[in-house]
C-alpha cells in the first residue's frame, strides 16, 4: 500500500519513524498524516484528514512536504543538516547554499533543521549544493533575509 511506501521511505531515507498515535493515508498520490484520534469519528465521507505530508510521484520520487518537515523533521537522523537562522531565511527566499559537511548527506532530498534541532525545510543536495525546494507561495522576499 502506498501509505506503507511513504513510511518505508521516511525510515530508509531519513531514519524517521512516526509514533503509533499517527496514521498515514494516501489519496491520489498525496499522502496525509493524521492523528489517530480521528478514527473515532465514524464518518464515511471525509474530504481529508490531518496534514499533507508529501507526494508520491514527484520529480524527486517521494517528497515529504515542507509542513511535514516543520512538524516531524526533528526526528530525522540521517540525510539531515543543521543550518543557521540566516540560512533558514535564505532557503525560504528560494536561494541555494553550500552544504557545510557534505559527508553527512547523500545526494537527493535532505531535511534541514535549525540550530534548535527543529525541522525547517526539505532541500535537494546535488554534490554538496543545497537547492531550496520551498514552493513559491511559501517563499519570503529576499529583502527579509537578515
Amino acid at each position: 500500500m502506498d501509505e506503507d511506501k511513504f513510511a518505508v521511505y521516511l525510515k530508509s531515507r531519513f531514519g524517521i519513524m512516526l509514533s503509533e498515535e499517527f496514521g498515514i493515508e494516501e489519496k491520489t498520490s498525496k499522502v496525509y498524516v493524521y492523528s489517530k484520534d480521528l478514527e473515532k469519528l465514524g464518518l464515511r465521507w471525509v474530504h481529508r484528514r490531518g496534514l499533507l505530508a508529501g507526494k508520491l510521484n514527484t520529480l524527486f520520487g517521494i517528497k515529504p512536504s515542507l509542513d511535514f518537515t516543520l512538524v516531524f523533521g526533528h526526528l530525522a537522523q540521517k540525510n539531515c543538516a543543521v543550518i543557521s537562522d540566516e540560512e533558514v531565511a535564505q532557503i525560504f527566499a528560494g536561494e541555494d547554499m553550500v552544504l557545510k559537511d557534505s559527508s553527512t548527506c547523500e545526494d537527493g532530498l535532505v531535511m534541514l533543521k535549525n540550530v534548535k534541532g527543529m525541522g525547517v525545510a526539505v532541500a535537494l543536495n546535488k554534490g554538496g549544493t543545497l537547492q531550496s525546494l520551498v514552493q513559491k507561495d511559501r517563499q519570503i522576499a529576499k529583502e527579509q533575509v537578515f
Binding site: L38, W45, V46, H47, R48, R49, L52, D67, V71
Partner: peptide, 18 residues
C-alpha cells in the same frame, strides 16, 4: 482551510464538505 491546517501543522482536523 487546508493551507492553514498544513502551515500550522495540525493533525487532528478532519475536513468535510457537507
Amino acid at each position: 482551510l487546508a493551507s492553514h491546517v498544513d502551515r500550522l501543522g495540525i493533525t487532528s482536523i478532519a475536513m468535510t464538505n457537507f
